[in-house]
Nucleic acid binder design. Structure first.
Lengths: 289, 289
DNA sequence: CATCATTTGTGCGTATGTATC
DNA sequence: AGATACATACGCACAAATGAT
């Protein structure tokens, strides 16, 4: 059959490499159409499955997208906005989803399914991942708080709005007041109360923020409104005792094609706390962690 | 033909969803084998191309990998080491690839193809992306310095060592001394001289570091030694005039499954400058930017 | 409004090559 | 050497979305 036999120049790989170079070069401009499958079949004299394999590769690399019945297109890159990480021991600012702050920083609708509380909050048990983060055993009771934010339709390419998901996990042993009905309601509506309780009962704490990324899973693509194959930025902030034992972990997930992460020193001379919400928004800052 | 016809329950999608859930659940443990293609063909009563499509999906999501002649396996997650971002105006530390520092922070072999200079350095012209970063027009002369670092075989899963790629772009107009043969050699061997020149000639400068991520392209996977589909962390540090105009841009690319990004305040009480190289390494820190 | 050409999505069967055990 | 498993590639058929006629 005389197939190329060398994996390095498999025919689909040649096509993918050609197209990738052309896209990164700008020969196919962002938003523009790539050649149709039949065109590529003719051009490279291969079968349609081979052409499709090449295009699927570009899609999985986030370089292209496909619309059924229309064709394949170069994926445009939206402008990235900024998530600002603070170093300070300021639980007021550090509290994620602290309503006044987050709203002020450019979030149009801080609603979650039209319900009142900012966070869903429920007592569950730690799965393997959460157990590692909190330094407890799997199955240990934890408080799981979750919040989903979206930022109104900006100059979005496909009409999709940017979203952020915030998950918070707390060792339930460290916040027995959670079960008090009155406080429970407060905690769900006012994250600052939540953090104040923790700091009041567990004294001076350390904050530690680590950032990484990975490819989004399909369910995350759905909840974060990511149309294409993309990476998610994962910002994990740990509130810990001075001895290092974790008290609470907050994990922010953000689509990597819409967000970048900066640090407070980067804002000219004035510390960010002295900037007005409008000034922060003008600097492209959506969230302060 | 009676094909399911509804894209939502495409047969390959059902299989992929099943396998993904099983992997995230731990029913297929990390490093363990997934069912072989023929097994899945029998289990779901579909053709082999359909099974392969499902597996390819998991691979492109970074959840699995395939070894020819052996089978498909759940991708284990290696431990992440840390890249530390400093906020200070310290060009000595800030200089990437400053030989003594980088080596001290745990890099066994800071060699690049067994050549002497740490950085390749050449004068080229700005492509579109670099032009945007430096605030010049496409085609403007720029100095491009490049360096590739690898960290010896740690507890790597597949024997691959972690690697970092560092690219630096400078507006060539701002460093005419680059063309002086004597200095040229110095600049390539001693990045600190390079940055000292820039700061000496352009006075007080601002440093700005922004981090984001995206899915790695195939060529990047090769140079960064990433066996699987993965995200790359992109750390972009800009050296700018106080008025904001860029002088030099350093871009670090790191495999997101092996690195996370932290900040200097997180190191206990002592600033990282006071820690010995060994203490830094013990804290899992590979690089200070 | 219906029809048609174009384009992509899903799926089958088959053949051959190559790596691993 | 043989069995197993994955990689590449072809041809074919039909479904479904799109846009123009």
């Amino acid at each position: 059959m005389e197939i190329s036999t060398d994996d390095k120049d498999a025919r689909w790989r040649v096509i993918a490499t050609d197209l990738r170079a052309a896209i990164l070069d700008g020969r196919y401009p962002p938003g523009g159409a790539l050649p149709s499958e039949p065109e590529l079949v003719r051009k490279y004299d291969v079968s349609r499955p081979t052409v499709r394999k090449a295009i699927e590769t570009l899609v999985s690399e986030g370089l292209a997208y496909v619309m059924r019945g229309r064709g394949s297109f170069v994926r445009p890159m939206p402008e990235r906005r900024t998530i600002l990480i603070t170093d300070r021991d300021r639980p007021d600012l550090a509290a994620p989803g602290n309503h006044p702050d987050v709203q002020a920083f450019g979030w149009d609708l801080a609603q979650r399914d039209h319900e009142a509380p900012l966070f869903t909050g429920e007592k569950t048990t730690a799965n393997r991942n959460v157990a590692v983060l909190l330094g407890v055993r799997s199955g240990h009771p934890v408080i799981h708080r979750r919040s989903l934010w979206h930022r109104g339709h900006t100059a979005a390419v496909h009409g999709a709005s940017a979203r952020l998901e915030i998950n918070s996990y707390t060792n339930a042993d460290l916040l027995p007041a959670w079960d008090d009905p009155k406080r429970h309601a407060q905690y769900r509506k006012r994250p600052d109360f939540f953090y104040q309780s923790l700091t009041r009962e567990h004294g001076p704490v350390r904050w530690m923020t680590l950032t990484t990324a990975r490819i989004a899973y399909e369910d995350e693509r759905t909840t974060l409104g990511m149309d294409y194959a993309e990476a998610v930025l994962i910002i994990r902030r740990t509130m810990a005792h001075p001895n290092g034992h974790p008290i609470e972990v907050t994990e922010v997930k953000a689509p990597a094609n819409r967000y970048e992460i900066g640090h407070h020193r980067e804002l000219a001379d004035a510390p960010e706390a002295d900037l007005t919400p409008q000034e922060l928004a003008d600097n492209g800052i959506d969230l302060v962690i």
